[in-house]
Amino acid sequence: MNPIFKTGIRLAAAVTATSAAMAPLTLFAAESGHGGGSAMPQLDVSTYGTQVFWLAVTFAVLFILMWKVAIPRVGDVVQAREQKVRADLERAEQLSAEIAETELSVEKALSEARSEAQEILRKAQDKLAADHAKKQDKLDAELAEKLSEAEARIAAARDEALASVRDVALEVAEASVEKLTGTKAKPAELSAAIDAASKGA
């Protein structure tokens, strides 16, 4: 057994005796310890003092380093990131609400414009229809006028034609009487005969 561990035995004994639950283990360790360090170094009680001492020292140092240095650093970064993510999410939410609002107003404006356009279209159509009707009326009147004019002209032409038919008939009758009889018929008799014939016709 290493001489520098001598105090370690007493130290370890004191440490292990702190808990009643550890009593059987201490006994076991002590028994094996007598057999020399070759069996299980873990049961060599002479090394317990230094191990517990350095465990306490290193663990305490690590605890202070973690508590005061490492954990706040990591915590800061993690927290900063969480805050940033939360802020970004909030902003995104706000923006999406704004977008929805804008969309709504755009839609409203659009529907307003659409109804307005329809109104204009309807008015234009009405006006067009009215104009059309007016023009139609005017055209109808003109046409009717022209028609009556034409009818009058036709009637005049017919009268004229009918009158000239009488003259032609008179001439034809005069000529045919002359050719047949060789004498000239009296115009008064001729016209009377024609009138009678045309009346009979």
Partner: peptide
């Protein structure tokens, strides 16, 4: 004595 700096430490 007893707190030598060992391979464990």
């Amino acid at each position: 004595d007893g707190i030598a700096f060992t391979n464990s430490a």
